[in-house]
Design a protein around this nucleic acid. Structure first.
Lengths: 338, 338
DNA sequence: CTGAAAGCGCTTACAG
DNA sequence: CTGAAAGCGCTTACAG
């Protein structure tokens, strides 16, 4: 039994194969095994296989000074957006000898800093930070650590190191252009969750482009609660009471947007006839509701894959990849609500 | 700059504080610092703080023979069920010096084995396996590794080691009891995804209890596709065409159940008047649809927290905790669709 | 209460 | 193409 106490080590394999530990080390390293004589290689691999050798990764990490770990820090796992980014990264890193370690902060910027500090003890090859805001403390810490860091989902005005995503103002601007092109002229916005600074920038981007295109200044409704269908219903009800002339709505996320559509269905308000609705993210739910929700697609998978590619470029040699800031644009998915 | 090359080590702190490495090691270990003189402790901590010392976790893991890592293997992160189990575990492990490492298998049982084998190289304190099925290879591997392992979400007939969850047949039985108590007598079941063996057991449990209570034998509709609202709509349409006398439906998951309700709304079928619908999981969507979906709540958070508690019990000393198999029951949440 | 020695299991950097 | 030596940064087990 290869249990923890008496685990099979490099020395055991060396003994069994009649070679030195170094030869075993080389035989089991994809990069260095080419230098070995074919029959030596075969003998070592056979011995390793029959003994059930599994390298001690802590020991490897200690000497090689790189762990092969990519540390991903997200606010929340239940959120499909972050889950898909992680899935994209893991898919892109598959079979490259890199493992991911995922930590969640619960949207607490201070927790992000503690988490990065702690994870740094594993000497990750890279950090991926997915949360919406970054404290100065994290920025200083990450710089000080000297570990490559990718900020994802967003393109911050002042990236710490690398970034893969899109400026959230752009997502709002695309929604404004779409609604304008469809002929709507009196817009409103729905948003929530004060901690979500990206949502705020989407709304700002919408407002800027909407007024630039000559639409009426948007009526903004905001609620500090977390997003949900129920909140979308409530905000839409409030909107109709306050500003009945509004003919279209940009909701900062799909949950609010679907809630708004549900409210309209219940209240007998024709969508998009009396009120058009555009969301953000393009979660699966957007395609599932009757007629489909028009929404701005955020390319989570592509961001994850591109992040993996960036990390592999890094490992490939260049001190910094050719393009350390990669813009993955979002786009409008027109469906039945606009 | 405390970058990777010249990171601050225990020896650096020892020099700065004028003590030996051992004293620093003790001062920084919560368990062993009690044995130090208070002023020594303070001096060491001050030195560690001002130098920005961060322990090298690979080195610690190598000597202490435990990493403090809990390795969680899930089929999919986008699935709210697994995300919540992970969140529950992470919440329960917070401030206990344990980190989680999360890997996904994409519902591929062979990938589960490869993943466990690879993660074992980090000498995790424990494995948490969340997927629905386990190959004999993983079972053998995990036993051979001698690392404590918790299977979660389910209570398998033959647990490898520890387990936290509920038998899925029980969830189906609860649904049958609920529908029976409400007076429904001619049931059907909707299910999908051949790889989801747990769903199959929920359906079996439903059938057994339904017939035991004297209901008509359920009409079973199955589709091999992944669950979605759209599939729920389609299955419900098929059901009504094939078995118009059916008066209630147990759907193996909330996505199918919501889809079934949406189909009924579109088709002008009164819910629950003409057809009652009960789902499984109690995802947020269940409370959000108009009137609310009646569903069997799966206690994901509680399972996560209980798993964390089990792991802490383990660390507390006992070779195996008092109750290595913990039953966290599910329950019906009655809402508007039954 | 504190410390000197040994060693965890690997890989790096030299040799030959 | 292969190997002997040294050392990564910690903690365990002994001493005192």
């Amino acid at each position: 039994m290869a249990s923890r106490a008496g685990a099979v080590t490099l020395a055991d394999v060396a003994r069994a194969a009649g070679v030195s530990k170094m030869t075993v080390s080389r035989a089991l390293s994809p990069d260095r095994s080419a230098a070995l004589q074919p029959d030596t290689l075969a003998r070592v691999r056979a011995a390793a296989g029959s003994l059930g050798y599994r390298p001690n990764l802590a020991a490897r990490s200690l000497t090689a000074r790189r762990s092969g770990i990519v540390a991903i820090v997200v606010p929340d796992l239940g959120n499909a957006v972050f889950a898909e980014i992680i899935a994209g990264i893991q898919a892109g890193l598959k079979d490259t000898g890199r493992e991911t370690i995922v930590a969640r902060t619960g949207f607490d910027p201070a927790a992000e800093c503690d988490t990065v500090r702690h994870l740094s003890g594993w000497n990750p090859d890279a950090f991926v930070l997915a949360g919406p805001s970054r404290t100065d403390a994290v920025r200083a810490l990450v710089r000080d650590l000297g570990i490559p860091t990718v900020e994802v989902m967003d393109l911050p005005p002042d990236p710490i190191d690398m970034a893969v995503g899109f400026p959230h103002a752009e997502a709002g601007a695309l929604a404004a252009e779409h609604l304008h092109a469809r002929g709507y002229r009196r817009p409103a916005t729905l948003s929530c969750n004060a901690a979500d600074t990206r949502a705020a920038r989407r709304i700002e981007g919408f407002r800027a482009r909407a007024t630039g295109l000559g639409l009426a200044p948007p009526v903004d409704l905001f609620d500090p609660a977390e997003p949900s269908f129920g909140l979308g219903r409530a905000l839409c009800a409030r909107l109709r009471a306050r500003a009945p002339a509004v003919d279209c709505v940009f909701a900062a996320n799909d949950l609010l947007a679907v809630g708004a559509v549900l409210h309209c269905q219940d209240a007998g308000v024709a969508v998009p006839g009396a009120l058009a609705v555009c969301g953000f993210n393009d979660l699966p739910i957007a395609a599932e509701i009757g007629g489909g929700l028009t929404t701005v697609h955020s390319p989570r998978r592509a961001i994850g894959r591109e992040t993996a590619a960036l990390l592999l470029d890094l490992a490939g040699g260049a001190a910094r990849p050719v393009a350390p800031v990669r813009h993955i644009p979002c786009h409008v998915v027109p469906r039945g609500t606009t």
